[in-house]
Structure formats: structure tokens, C-alpha cells
Amino acid sequence: MNKKNIIQWFTFGIFRALSYLVVLILFFILGFIIYNGIGVISWEFLTGFPEDGMTKGGILPAIVGTLCLMAGSMIFAFPVGVMSGIYINEYAGNNWAVKFIRIMTNNLSGIPSIVFGLFGMSLFVNTLGFGDSILAGSLTLGLLVLPLVIRTTEEAMKAIPDSFRTGSLALGATRLQTIWRVILPMAFPNIITGLILSVGRVSGETAPILFTVAAYFLPKLPASIFDQVMALPYHLYVISTSGTDIEASRSMAYGTALVLISIVLLINILANSLRKYFGNKVKTN
């Protein structure tokens, strides 16, 4: 082996080792939380209310709250995002307006989540008078994931060859009919995958809900969209940093972290298997 090949062998070895290390880091984080949290998970933990200053009991209100926020934000972000994606990809030409919209969408996705929190508090909570509520929190979170939904929709539609569009138009279909009958059904699997990933993103966000919806402790479940809720990420934050007795609530924190991570894992697996399932289906057609 000459010198240059020794160098290559050496550097590639380092690169490979670092790549393995990334896998190791992920498994360490996941393993650590699963190992410490699995003992806490029980039926009572998942369906009970917090007790004794968050040191005992369960996290049901936080789970319900997070589910409410996931649903609420998607009700807003999904239709708007998909419609934006359709407009950018199918209607607007390559003019300045589209460029502008695209740059703005990019910028929106670059804005830190805490700024969304400030904005949500100022607009939804104070100016529009929603107060700390599911409505305010969902709108804030919806705005946060909007760029993600738009981008996945755009990519899903871009992947469809133009021959389908021209074919449909040549048969006398209008633009709208082409989109509704040809493009959307084909792009649907990828759009749904994007939607699922956005839901995952929403489930873990903390900063935007700090001042728009999250409550430290609530003894009851929300009854309307104008109620405050507890949420899993915020719950994890408070019991690991500022609970009444941090040491005593540590096991609760591990359990909460495990539930949160399980949601994210499940969503990822779901998205991946959907992608695979639809991928195979399209091929066989």
C-alpha cells in the first residue's frame, strides 16, 4: 500500500467510525430513556391525573392536551398548506410572485419557535382575545408547521410527470379537474406522509405553547377549544426543572419522556411504512 492509499484508508476509517457513532448516540439516547422510563409506564400512569405535586399519579391530561393540539393545528395547517402547495406548483408560473411566496415560506420555516410563541401570545392570546386556549395554541403551532406541509405537498406534486397533466388536459379536462382527478390522487400518499411528519413535529414543540396554551397543572380535561390544556413536552419541562420536588418527580419525568418519544417513534414508523406501502402499490400499477 502506498502513502496515498494509507491516508485514504485512515480517513475513511474515521468517517466510518463517526457515522457509527451517530447511530450509537441515537441508540444511547433512546435506550437511556426507555431503560429508565419503562418501569414507570403503567395503566395508572397513562390514565391518571398527577398527584402529590407531580411526584405521583399519571399524565392523562398532558396526553389528552397534546392530542388536542396535534388535531387542532392540523385542522388549520393541513388544508391551508396543501392548497398553498397546489397553487405554487400547479397554478402560478415561474414569476416573481411565486419566487416571493417561496422565499417567504423558506423564511417562515427559519423563524425560531420561541418567536412563534411571542407572536401567538401577542396576536391570538391578547389582541384577538382568545386567552390561553387550545385555539390560540393550535393556530400558533399550525403556523409553525405550515412551511413543512407546503414543502411536502410541493414535492409530492413535483414528482408527478408532466405527461399526466398534458394527457388529462388533452382529453378536455379543465385544470381544476386535472388536479382533482389526476394529480391529487397520485400525490396523495406522499402528502399524507408529510402530514404525519408534521404531526410528529407538533407533538414535541414546547416553546410556541409556553405562552399560548400550556398549563402547569389542571385537575380536569379540556371541555372546549377555549380551555387551557397541559401538554407532554411542557409537562416534561416543568417537572424536570421547576417542580416542587425535582428528585421525587424524576421518575415521572422519565415516564413522560418515554411517552413523548414513543409518539415520535410511532409516527416515524407509520410514515415510513406508509411510504413503502404506497410506493409498492404505485409500482405494481
Binding site: S19, V22, V23, I29, S240, L265
Partner: peptide
């Protein structure tokens, strides 16, 4: 190897920041 690494990186990106914070803390 790509088939292993790609989802791992996706998952790393998907873990909520508050979980990273908690992991960092403990």
C-alpha cells in the same frame, strides 16, 4: 449502511427539543 443511517438521522431530527434538554440535564 445508508438504509440504516438515513432513518437514524431522520429520527435524531424528530426527537423533541425538550427531550434533548432533559437528556442533557440528566
Amino acid at each position: 449502511m445508508r438504509k440504516v443511517l438515513k432513518p437514524v438521522i431522520e429520527l435524531l431530527a424528530g426527537i423533541p427539543s425538550v427531550v434533548y434538554g432533559f437528556f442533557g440535564l440528566v
